[in-house]
C-alpha cells in the first residue's frame, strides 16, 4: 500500500514537473523592468543602438531621426527623412527605411546616400545590411528585396504559406540567416541570405501584427503590436518568455549588452528591461 502511494505521489510530482516545463511562456526569460524612458512628443517607430549607450530613434511622426541618451535627453536631431520606420546601425552607418518616400538612406553623418529609387518600393519599412548585401522589407509589395549593388533580387510573394509574406515590416541578418517580421501573417519567418525559406514560427502565440524584430546571440525578440507584448524565442523558434509590463503598442526592440529597449509607439516611451544573466 505504501509503495502504491509512493508511486502515485512520485507520478504526480513528475507530471506537475512536466506541465511546468511545457509552459515557459509565462516566464520573463530573466528580463526584469528597470525603468521607462518618456519620449513625450517623439512619435518613433524604429530604434537602434548608437555609440556610448545612446539610442537612435526613427521619429516617423515628425520626419526626423533623434539621438537620445539613457535618460531620454535629446542629443541630436536630424530632420529631412520622410516617415522613417525601422532603422539599423551597421559600422559607422545608420540605415534608414523611408516609408513615405519609397527610398533608403545610408547616413554617415553628415554624408547621406540615397538608394533604391529605381527598385519600385512601395513603403519600405525595415532594412539591414551584412557583407555588402542590403535587405529591405517592402511593406505593400509583400516581399523582401535584396540589393548587392549590382542586382536586385525579390524574395517571396504575398500569401500565408511557408515562405510567403503579408505586409512584412522588419528584417535582420543574424547567424548566417535572414529573420523577417511577417507582420500581418502574425509570425516570424527565417530565410537564407539568398532568400530560401528555412523556418516559420510564432503562429501559436496568436500575435496581432508582428511589427518589429531583433535577433541577439541567443534570442529572437518580436514586438506584438496590438497585444502590447514582447515575445522572446530561442533561435530555433521556441518560445522562452513574454514581457508585457509597461508595454503599449510596441513597434521595435533592440538589445544592448544586458539591457533590452522596447519602443512603445502609442505609449510614447521606451521600456527598459535588464537581464543579470547576460
Amino acid at each position: 500500500m505504501k509503495k502504491a502511494v509512493l508511486i502515485f505521489v512520485s507520478g504526480l510530482v513528475l507530471a506537475l514537473g512536466l506541465v511546468s516545463c511545457k509552459n515557459p511562456a509565462k516566464s520573463n526569460a530573466g528580463w526584469n523592468l528597470t525603468n521607462v524612458i518618456p519620449l513625450d512628443s517623439i512619435g518613433a517607430v524604429g530604434i537602434a543602438a548608437a555609440e556610448n549607450g545612446n539610442l537612435w530613434l526613427a521619429d516617423a511622426d515628425n520626419n526626423r531621426l533623434i539621438k537620445i541618451n539613457a535618460t531620454g535627453a535629446v542629443r541630436e536631431v536630424h530632420p529631412g527623412f520622410e516617415r522613417p520606420m525601422h532603422i539599423a546601425t551597421r559600422g559607422n552607418a545608420l540605415l534608414v527605411a523611408e516609408y513615405g518616400a519609397d527610398r533608403l538612406s545610408v547616413y554617415q553623418i553628415p554624408k547621406r546616400d540615397t538608394l533604391g529609387l529605381d527598385v519600385g518600393f512601395d513603403a519600405p519599412s525595415g532594412i539591414d545590411r551584412e557583407a555588402g548585401l542590403t535587405a529591405v522589407a517592402d511593406f505593400y509589395n509583400h516581399r523582401i528585396v535584396l540589393l548587392d549593388g549590382k542586382t536586385v533580387l525579390s524574395v517571396s510573394k504575398k500569401g500565408t504559406g511557408p515562405g510567403e509574406l503579408t505586409y512584412p515590416t522588419d528584417v535582420q541578418f543574424a547567424h548566417g540567416k535572414m529573420f523577417v517580421a511577417d507582420a500581418y501573417n502574425h509570425r516570424v519567418q527565417v530565410f537564407t541570405p539568398q532568400g530560401k525559406h528555412l523556418l516559420t514560427f510564432g503562429e501559436k502565440e496568436k500575435m496581432n501584427a508582428a511589427t518589429g524584430i531583433f535577433v541577439s546571440d541567443k534570442n529572437v525578440f518580436v514586438t506584438d503590436f496590438e497585444n502590447s507584448r514582447l515575445l522572446i524565442y530561442n533561435l530555433e523558434g521556441q518560445l522562452q518568455g513574454i514581457l508585457s509590463e509597461t508595454l503599449n503598442k510596441p513597434t521595435d526592440v533592440v538589445q544592448i549588452e544586458d539591457r533590452l529597449y522596447v519602443l512603445n509607439y502609442s505609449g510614447r516611451s521606451v521600456s527598459v528591461f535588464r537581464n543579470l544573466d547576460k
Partner: peptide, 15 residues
C-alpha cells in the same frame, strides 16, 4: 488607424 504602418500608408495614397 491605430497602427503607424496603416496610417502612413493612407497618407501615401493622397500624395
Amino acid at each position: 488607424m491605430g497602427c503607424p504602418f496603416c496610417a502612413y500608408g493612407l497618407e501615401k495614397k493622397f500624395k
